[in-house]
Structures are given as C-alpha cells and as structure tokens.
Amino acid sequence: MGLLNNKFEENIVTTTVDSLIGWAKKSSMFPLLLGTACCGIEMMAVGYSRFDVLERFGMLFRFSPRQSDVMIVAGTVTKKMAPVIKTVYDQMADPKYVIAVGSCAISGNIYKNYSTLQGLDRIVPVDVYIPGCPPIPEAFAYGIIELQKKIQREKVIRKNKEVLDPTAPPTGDVAAIKRPGYIKLPTAEDYAAFLDKDIEEIEAERSLLMPGRGSETK
C-alpha cells in the first residue's frame, strides 16, 4: 500500500462500484401504485402534502408499469384481480421490486373466504411487507426505508452465490426453507427407524450426548 498511502486529499470520495449503483437505484425509485382498496386511500393520503413520504425519498408516481421499477400493491388481492397483477408485474423491466402494503396483501387479513387470495406472495415475489390495517403513515416511511436498505445491499457487479429465479413460483415446502441455525425436522421415516433400534443403541447415543449422566434403566 506504499504507493497509495495517504495520497488523496479530502475532496475525493472512494467507494465500491456496487455501493454507487445501489445508492443511485435507491434514491430514484419510481413506484407504480396498485391501490385496490382502503390501503390505497391511505397511501394516496400519505404521498401528499402532510406526510410527503414519497417525494422526499426521490420517488415519483408513474401510472404505467413500463416506466416504473417498484410495484406497491396496497389493498386486498382477489382471485379475479390476481392475473391482472401478475401481468402488470411481468410488464415491468428488471430490476424490479414489490412492496406489499396492508394485512390483506400480506396474508388475506380477515377475508378468509372463497374470493380472496391469501397473500400477494402466492403470485409475485415480495421484497418488503408493511403490516397494518391500514398501516399508519410512519409505517409506510419505515417500509420504504427498509426497501432502500435492501437495495443498497444488493450485489450487482459482485457475484451472487445463490441466483434466485424471479419467475419460479414460491415453494410451499416449509421444511425446505433454510434458515440460520438450520434444524432438520423429523419425518415419519426417522420415527420408524427410531422404533427399530435396540435399546442398547439408544442408551449408548444418550450417554454420548449427556456424558455426565448414567443411564436410567438400571
């Protein structure tokens, strides 16, 4: 580092290219409003003069999916409306993000019936969930800040270890979701194998796990 050590004056900024791209993307998001129900009214109220959540983050409403990169779905998603939302999502250009606003978009809320989709993430991959019925304006601001943090963290030029396929449907298999501290849940085969073991093997395993204790059957 001898050549570059303490060479630059205070008026030069150094950063990674990824951070620069992330900063540019997060500061100029153009949201597409898909306000379907009550949360749509709250979002309109929040975007205007009193709270001004959108303008100060550099966001500008665009009403066409071809010109926007964040899709904000606020309100209940019904089964009749779901293909429309999927079409609109597909019309947006990459990179695109989705915010699900309100309990109805997250999981169907109190409408657990024949006509309501139980959550927006059954049809499109969602990045940020903002709960509430409707969420208070401060919650909106918090949700948008979380999305900005997520965009800032993204790897654009560096390699992504896991490449996620945005067109794949979300997997419904709970046991397959990997979390930190991954715990393998026992299945029926495990239980059958346990029943087939001899009692001495089980005692031997137990004494390995808890070395101080003697076996209790004696």
Partner: peptide, 11 residues
C-alpha cells in the same frame, strides 16, 4: 365490477 369482491355477506 367484481375485482374487489371480498365476500362480506358470506362472512
């Protein structure tokens, strides 16, 4: 209409 039919009467 019908894109926001949430089945209130049935619920």
């Amino acid at each position: 209409p019908g894109y926001l039919h949430r089945g209130t009467e049935k619920l």
